[in-house]
Nucleic acid binder design. Structure first.
Lengths: 130, 130
DNA sequence: ATTTGTGCAAATCGTTTGCATCTGA
DNA sequence: TCAGATGCAAACGATTTGCACAAAT
């Protein structure tokens, strides 16, 4: 994927072997929600060895460069979302599963922010149960 | 607060010294968002010694008995909310601060849940910035 | 050659657990 | 009495960090 190499360079990230492996896996066109450990295991299964520390570093680097978004849903793990356009989520607590919501959702009655603050973004989490 | 003692009993929680201290602090009529550590420190400042483990146990017990709600906003700490009625939150990432939203917010375009699942609740987090 | 990235292992931080001891009904 | 609660310290799991070594420009 010559494409991905250029993206990394354009974000001033050196296209190292590890970053290329990770980027190729993440940016294959299919949206993903992953954790650092999950990604590390996936790569291991594909016999691609990248240390866990590097996986963490890379995910954070990609976040800073806005190639990924952190999703802060439940409190034990950090999820990284390859879909960086604004959207919302279904969340299934039992399975700790995140699903993208593709609809646009409109609000009515959104409160004004406290003095001195502005609304950055509105995040909707639709908790699901059986 | 005789009141609080009865609440604990009605939830089949023994009104032990530690639980009473914690409940008296939490349920003073003012809504609070706290972490276990935060509460532990607060109590320490008031020269009320309760072990950290007991603070954790008690917060979880109170959650199970629906005297508190867990709020799962950002990923590093668990917040406990003394406001157990449905409401939404402002979130200031920089200060990791949570503020209750008292308005009711209406949605339009809420997607249907995937087959076999039902919507449990809709949580809105309004991220604020300066 | 110089900067930047990687990998390991140790460190950290919030949280949980095991277990001996204590307490309240 | 005795189930249930507490406190301590050790265990945990996700994440971060320090540092020597390796790779990229």
């Amino acid at each position: 994927m010559e494409n991905i190499k250029e993206i990394l360079i354009s974000k001033s990230l050196r296209p190292t072997k590890q970053r290329m492996l990770i980027a190729n896996y993440l940016f294959d066109g299919r949206d993903k929600h992953i954790t650092a450990e999950g990604l590390h295991n996936k790569l291991k299964k594909l016999s691609l060895r990248v240390s866990l520390a590097t996986v963490y570093n890379t995910l954070h680097d990609f976040c800073e460069k806005e190639l990924l978004n952190k999703v802060s849903i439940n409190s034990d793990k950090i999820y990284f979302d390859t879909n960086t356009s604004p959207h919302h989520h279904f969340y299934v607590a039992k399975e700790q599963q995140l699903i993208d919501v593709s609809n646009e959702i409109k609000f009515k009655g959104l409160p004004k922010p406290p003095k001195g603050k502005k609304i950055d973004k509105v995040e909707i989490i639709i908790h699901l149960k059986k």
